[in-house]
Simulated scan of single mutants.
Amino acid sequence: MAKSFEIRKTIVLEATPEQVWRTIATPQGQAAWSPDPYQSMEGMDVEATENERLAVRTPEAANGAFHAFEYLVSADDESTTTLTFVHSGYLGDDWEAEFDFGELTGYGWDMYLHTLAQYLKHFAGRPASFVTAQGPPTSATPDSWATLENALGVAGPFEQGQQLRLTPQGLPALEGVVDFAYPEFVNFLALRTTDGLYRFHDNSVMGMPQAVGHYIYADIDREATEQGWSDWLARVFA
């Protein structure tokens, strides 16, 4: 598969450039929508023009791999802003995975940028905690997604706008609306509730376990909440 890649996405956001900038360029804002908001920026090459452009490039690894992320912010009018996002890079001289990194990662960015839009539309200004947990290695098989759905008390495929109630044993039930849906061949569940955006990922196509990545806009103990979801995944796939 190709080792060099470029993923380009454009989205119109219901927010001012200043609001968008705070959400993409500060740790507090990143916690509301991004895939790895608590990653250290140490060693990164960062270029920033406030309210206009943010570019971040990772250091080059021994195998030549690097990732570059660029955000271009452009005001449309008093209430909307266009964000252009580019993720490019090189996967390394020894990259041999069979899946198409650019395609799958592009689907991921569709979801994360949608999450950004949902935050700015429904939860803007509220403090955010990103809660993530991963199942055991036994959950990396293609049939594990059905097990996860069963443990939540639902069955897909899911449609955007669909009302759902999730019942993870040992955790509070979640009621809300499906706010994002992939094509049928991508197993994923996204639920918007009154206090957060909850995401359940089937990573088995990449040989990785089932996982959750939730954005909660309420006063919580993040570590305890992460442990609760981690324990739940361990029970589901015991």
Rank of each mutant, 00 (worst) to 15 (best):
Q28Y: 13
Q28E: 15
G29N: 00
Q30C: 08
A31E: 12
A32P: 04
D36N: 12
D36H: 09
D36M: 07
P37N: 08
P37S: 02
P37L: 02
P37G: 03
Q39V: 13
Q39Y: 06
Q39F: 07
E42Y: 07
G43N: 04
M44N: 09
M44L: 13
D45S: 04
D45H: 03
D45M: 06
V46K: 05
E47F: 11
E47C: 03
E47T: 14
E47K: 11
A48L: 02
T49Y: 13
T49K: 15
T49A: 13
E50C: 01
E50S: 07
N51G: 03
E52W: 03
R53E: 08
L54I: 01
L54S: 02
L54W: 00
A55Y: 14
A55K: 14
A55V: 15
R57F: 00
R57L: 03
P59R: 07
P59C: 07
P59Q: 03
E60H: 06
A62C: 06
A62P: 02
N63M: 06
N63G: 03
G64Y: 05
F66W: 11
H67D: 15
H67M: 15
F69P: 02
E70H: 08
E70K: 14
Y71A: 02
L72P: 00
S74A: 15
S74T: 12
D76K: 10
D77W: 10
D77H: 11
D77F: 11
S79T: 15
T80W: 04
T81A: 04
T82W: 01
L83H: 11
F85C: 09
F85M: 10
F85Y: 14
V86Y: 08
V86I: 15
V86P: 01
V86H: 05
H87G: 04
H87W: 07
H87K: 07
S88I: 01
S88H: 10
L91V: 05
L91F: 01
G92A: 12
G92K: 09
G92D: 05
D94I: 05
D94Y: 02
W95C: 09
W95K: 10
W95E: 11
E96Y: 03
E96F: 05
E96W: 03
E98Q: 12
E98L: 07
F99Q: 07
F99E: 05
D100F: 02
D100Q: 00
D100A: 04
F101Q: 07
F101G: 05
G102I: 03
E103L: 12
T105L: 14
T105S: 15
G108I: 01
W109G: 00
W109K: 06
D110K: 04
D110C: 06
M111Y: 15
Y112G: 00
Y112N: 04
Y112V: 05
L113S: 06
L113G: 10
H114K: 14
H114S: 15
H114R: 12
H114M: 13
T115V: 13
T115F: 04
L116I: 05
L116D: 01
A117H: 03
A117S: 13
Y119Q: 04
L120R: 04
K121F: 08
H122F: 11
F123P: 01
F123M: 02
A124V: 05
A124M: 14
G125R: 07
R126N: 08
R126V: 10
S129V: 09
S129M: 10
F130M: 15
V131M: 08
T132W: 10
